[in-house]
Design a protein around this nucleic acid. Structure first.
Lengths: 300, 300
DNA sequence: TATGAGTGATGCCGAAACGGCATCACATCA
DNA sequence: TGATGTGATGCCGTTTCGGCATCACTCATA
């Protein structure tokens, strides 16, 4: 707030004990800071700082004034935050960290739908691996996390969860494309691309394969579904991803998702989570409701 | 205060429910008030007032902001008043470090007289040895120091000085009590208590004795005049202190001070000092004037 | 229904405040 | 003694502010 701008000048001088050092911190020239100080002292009628050869020191009057300005600065921050919360529906930034599998269809759709009704709400969305999603939520760098099969964590609060099966993704014109389901053993005939350990589906594959004699010899292992997508489009191969990564019905993307049908192949959960102690800003809370509704519609 | 000027604009608008009426009250044109309101709303990112055909009304966000600005305006009024009190001698703390010899009569009297006229001015007074007095002044832990014969020190500024002779202090009913002056050789007949090196008069005694064949065999050596006082009251002995330690004329304390009359016995200076670069708070500066006057009256 | 009054918003522009650059005066230190 | 660091100050271009005039809209009244 502009009306407290010069209070910030005085605060910086009090903290650094030097007009020049404070000016550096504030990214203005020292003469400007000096003049504001002198103007304020003239207005108050007394020196707020004693001038020493190597800087300045607060006078008793200065101590009183600095105590005041620190109360005022804290209070203005608080009221600004309160106003933002109140207005949260109409403006704000919702920060999301999500695994890559949601970047193509789910997240863009949710964001787009939400912004149709709340055009001033912005999204800051980071796509990263499972562990990084959790870390960002815990560090308050993301309001919301979308992650597949997170490890149990007392710092996380689950806001929504849905079951997700692994699917084989192939080009539309692939010989497996019309199947209602497919077995892993059928897929190994083709060039394979598999997710690395940072992607959620890999753990499900590993758990299954550890109990089978079947061995996968992937042509590609990657943390990028985009890479794997282009790989199979080019090679007529197969990659694996949770069903959430599939395009919504009616949309064509050149790829089809076929559920893997294997006894003993576990499914996992896609989780929408937040930091446990967190009170979400209003906009983020509304986004949660929208996402819940969308996720629930996917299981019915 | 200028920095809260626009808060006063908003306050007036909220109170009157009209930009034009507020402008009248503030003695500015309504366009100026209107623009400050609009600028603030742009800065905050939301309307503080709903615009009605016949004026304005606070929004919920505006209610929050007005609650804030009223707290801020009350607080700035209060701190201004506190600063005025401080500068107007209506409040403040004067910090003094002094040698023990002044604790009995001089300091209590000066403090008492000063507080009769300035009851809200408090004193924080530390009684300590000569070196500690100087250290406290230099460390800005004391505004003023009262010390006997300090070593020359570039960091100290002398505000007042008076000559002080050594006196022999004896009980009122002592055989030396009626004398106008006394020699050291007369005192050695009685039990002697002498100051230790932390007290100012000791250096004068030592300097004198180093050029004489007379040897003192003190029964007591101490850094506490109170102890020495009670010692001589109990034993009918003699102790030595600068004349400042004597009760003012007309006051009876059970002891009398008799000036030591010895050729070659130097006198010393009692010094009122401050840290050289220090600008004293107003209250302390006034105390200096009072002390000067009192000290000067003691030499005339 | 037309008109006058009251309201907040806006264009234009001169006045006031501000910050940047350069320099000064002083104290400190090696 | 010269270099360095500090707050203060002159000059001036830039930004912000307030005053004057006007606009757009609503409401009340004749």
């Amino acid at each position: 707030m502009q009306h407290v701008r010069y209070l910030r000048y005085v605060d910086a001088v009090a903290r650094t004990g030097s007009i020049r050092k404070a000016a550096e911190r504030l990214n203005v020239v020292s003469s400007a800071v000096n003049r504001r100080i002198l103007d304020l002292e003239a207005e108050i009628g007394t020196a707020l700082f004693e001038r020493l050869p190597r800087g300045v020191r607060l006078t008793p009057a200065g101590e009183l004034f600095v105590a005041y300005l620190r109360r005022a600065l804290a209070d203005v921050d608080r009221v600004q935050s309160e106003i933002e919360d109140l207005e949260g529906l109409r403006r704000g930034v919702v920060r999301i960290a999500a695994i890559e599998g949601l970047a193509t269809h789910f997240l863009p759709a949710v964001i787009h739908d939400f912004q149709r009704e709340h055009p001033k709400v912005a999204f800051s969305t980071v796509i990263c691996g499972r562990d990084e999603v959790v870390a960002r939520v815990k560090r308050f760098e993301a309001d919301l996390g979308l992650v597949f099969n997170p490890a149990p964590d007392a710092d996380l609060r689950y806001l929504a969860e849905i079951e997700q099966r692994l699917c084989a993704f192939v080009p539309e014109d692939h010989s497996l494309a019309g199947r209602r389901s497919v077995r892993l053993s059928e897929c190994v005939e083709y060039p394979l691309a598999v997710p690395d350990r940072s992607l959620g589906g890999r753990a499900l594959l590993d758990a299954f394969l550890s109990k089978r004699s079947l061995r996968l010899e992937p042509s590609l292992e990657s943390n990028s579904y985009e890479l794997m997508r282009h790989f199979v489009m080019r090679t007529g191969g197969v990659y694996f991803q949770i069903s959430m990564g599939a395009p919504p019905p009616g949309e064509r993307s050149g790829l089809v998702a076929i559920p893997l049908e294997e006894r003993g192949l576990a499914s996992g959960k896609l989780v929408l989570c937040a930091e446990r102690s967190r009170t979400l800003p209003v906009a983020a809370a509304m986004v949660v409701e929208d996402m819940r509704a969308t996720l629930e519609s996917l299981v019915s």
